[in-house]
């Protein structure tokens, strides 16, 4: 069972690497949105640094969603998903591993790009650490919850927009506590650790619950 799980994870990572497009699109989108923001708002450095945490987080959620409909889509189209259900892994674990692969190929690169983009928004350099921490803690929730939407919209045309409508509301808790972490590290006085811990809790909960929901959606879609 572990061998099968590792094989699936390795295959998904390799596919993401070879096909490249999804990672590149997400990074490019994130970059473009953040570069446009100061151009639209004007050179008010105080304003920029005040809204930087929120902009960085919201743009990351959108960038993460951009590639999320591919979590199951390709496997569904070419028939691999049928064959995956005949393996030793329960569908919940298949969904979990595919979400994990999405996190590694999208969540981590976006997180690493974020502090660089933070400079464009005049985010204090001391806060970059908390920005990365909050994204590292929050992006698993982004990928795992996105898998639910990917499962529900499987086989639909233009699933991306529908998925965003369904999934974005579910990102509200992660967004609130993610932004709170970064903001608290800039302005104080509250400690940034408290919201960070809650964010970790949200991610852990989504790690456990989302695969169950995603697997239920997949079962319905496969019929």
């Amino acid at each position: 069972m572990i061998r099968a799980a590792l094989a699936l994870l390795g295959r998904d990572l390799r596919l993401a690497w070879r096909e490249g497009g999804a990672i590149g699109t997400a990074l490019g989108f994130y970059f473009a949105v953040i570069v446009l923001t100061p151009l639209g708002l004007g050179p008010d450095l105080n304003l920029l640094s005040r809204i930087a945490p929120g902009i960085l987080w919201v743009a990351l959620l959108l960038a993460g969603l951009l590639s999320a409909d591919r979590i199951f889509h390709n496997d569904y189209e070419d028939g691999s998903l049928d064959l995956l259900t005949l393996g030793p892994l329960p569908l919940e674990l298949v969904a979990g591993i595919k979400s994990l692969a999405h996190w590694i190929t999208t969540g981590i690169p976006l997180t690493l790009l974020a502090p660089v983009l933070g400079l464009l928004l005049n985010l204090p350099i001391e806060s970059s650490g908390f920005l990365v921490l909050s994204l590292l803690a929050g992006t698993p929730a982004v990928s795992f919850v996105a898998a639910i939407g990917a499962g529900l919209t499987l086989g639909l045309r233009r699933s991306g927009v529908l998925m965003a409508l369904m999934i974005l509301p579910l990102y509200v808790p992660a967004l609130i506590f993610g932004v709170a972490t970064v903001s608290a590290s800039i302005t104080g006085p509250a400690s940034p650790w408290a919201p960070l811990m809650i964010l970790c809790g949200i991610s852990l909960a989504s790690l456990v619950l989302s695969p169950i929901a995603a697997a239920a959606a997949l079962r319905a879609a496969l019929r």
Partner: peptide, 24 residues
């Protein structure tokens, strides 16, 4: 079934290797 379940960006050997490991 009608669909072959073949990944277009993996080689023939890699496709087979994956199913071998996945199916134990």
């Amino acid at each position: 079934g009608h669909l072959n379940g073949i990944k277009t960006s993996l080689s023939v050997a890699e496709n087979l290797q994956f199913w071998c490991e996945y199916y134990g």
